[in-house]
């Protein structure tokens, strides 16, 4: 009985995927299939990365309104990438294989996440207002610094970093797919493996310590995993502001049991349906030029407002 939502969501996602692969295909299948399969894989990867990162971040920060992107994780990714290009120079960066640059930046983001958000969470857990304020300040600061550096970089070099500045689901960076898949699947496997620990961590510092969890260590580990997942999604499609909030809130409506064993897959499936189904609808059915990220962020943003106003932060 309890697995019915999962089964239904699986079927819907499968349907979306099949339609995405086949609908409106012109030309040889031998070209269409691999081309679209790459994009589909990218979309699904991004969807799962974002939903998983959001669930995990909400668990360690002890509330259900904040997400990595609201707190400035992906802004930090763009900032670090711009900083790398700035300091290494465009020549050096272009000579680096894209994968190496991506790997390097992921490492930097992991470091930054633990330093910045590790301390922030230790000090303000449970204090939603302070967290949101700090997040807004972080995100704004990261974006201004990025913009500042980008102005100082000459236009040729700008090419390299432009990809990390705005969301685009229709042009996924499939070059990065191999490394992105390995990192993403690895992180997801670790998150899933420790799903029962996350349940305990969600109880808060004191209750989790009482049950024998090393809360600081688990929090740092969770932030490292969030950093990897955010890197993957930002590298593939750029920053997406409110997708995580939208899909995880919907997942909590679908299943109220609060366990990660159910929340993680349900959120991932809803996220996949939103991205694949949304892209399918916009691109193939309505042939609209509105980017999906705009639609998702609009809906997600409204939802964010709704949650804030209703005060259902915990």
């Amino acid at each position: 009985m309890r697995s019915r939502p999962v089964a239904v969501l699986c079927v819907v996602l499968l349907l979306c995927a099949v339609l995405y692969m086949t609908l409106g295909a012109k030309g040889a299948w031998s070209f269409v299939i691999p081309f679209r399969a790459g994009k589909l894989a990218g979309l699904v990867l991004v969807a799962v990365a974002i939903s998983t990162a959001t669930v995990l971040f909400q668990t360690v920060s002890g509330n259900r309104i904040l997400t990595p992107s609201i707190m400035g994780f992906d802004a930090l990714y763009s900032l670090l990438l711009t900083g790398l290009v700035f300091f290494l120079g465009a020549q050096a960066t272009i000579q680096l294989p894209p994968m190496a640059l991506f790997g390097l930046n992921t490492g930097l983001l992991m470091l930054g996440a633990v330093l910045l958000f590790g301390t922030l969470i230790a000090q303000t857990r449970g204090d939603l207002l302070r967290m949101i304020l700090t997040g807004i300040i972080f995100a704004t600061l990261f974006r201004s610094l990025t913009a500042f550096w980008q102005r100082m970089i000459d236009p040729n070099e700008f090419q390299v970093i432009q990809v990390a500045s705005y969301a685009r689901f229709n042009r996924i960076d499939t070059d990065l797919l191999p490394l992105a898949s390995v990192l993403c699947l690895g992180a997801i496997a670790l998150v899933w493996h420790r799903r029962r620990q996350w349940d305990v961590l969600a109880l808060g510092h004191d209750a989790a310590t009482n049950l024998g969890l090393r809360v600081r260590l688990e929090t740092v580990f969770a932030l490292l995993l969030v950093a990897v997942l955010v890197s993957v999604s930002t590298a593939l499609v750029g920053p997406v502001a409110f997708l995580g909030l939208l899909v995880v809130s919907l997942a909590r409506l679908v299943d109220g049991s609060e366990t990660h064993a159910r929340l993680l897959p349900i959120a991932a499936l809803i996220s996949g349906i939103t991205l694949v189904g949304g892209q399918l609808a916009l691109e193939r059915v309505f042939a609209l030029s509105t980017p999906l990220s705009v639609v998702v962020d609009l809906l997600g943003g409204l939802f964010f407002f709704f949650l804030l106003l209703k005060g259902r932060s915990r």
């Binding site: 029962r196 109880l203 024998g212 609060e258």
Partner: peptide
Amino acid sequence: QDAAPRLSVSDLVAFGRYPHSRG
């Protein structure tokens, strides 16, 4: 105590066994 408010009573009590059976 500010344990997760949406948890059911039996799920909360079950957490008491976590140190012994790891969930």
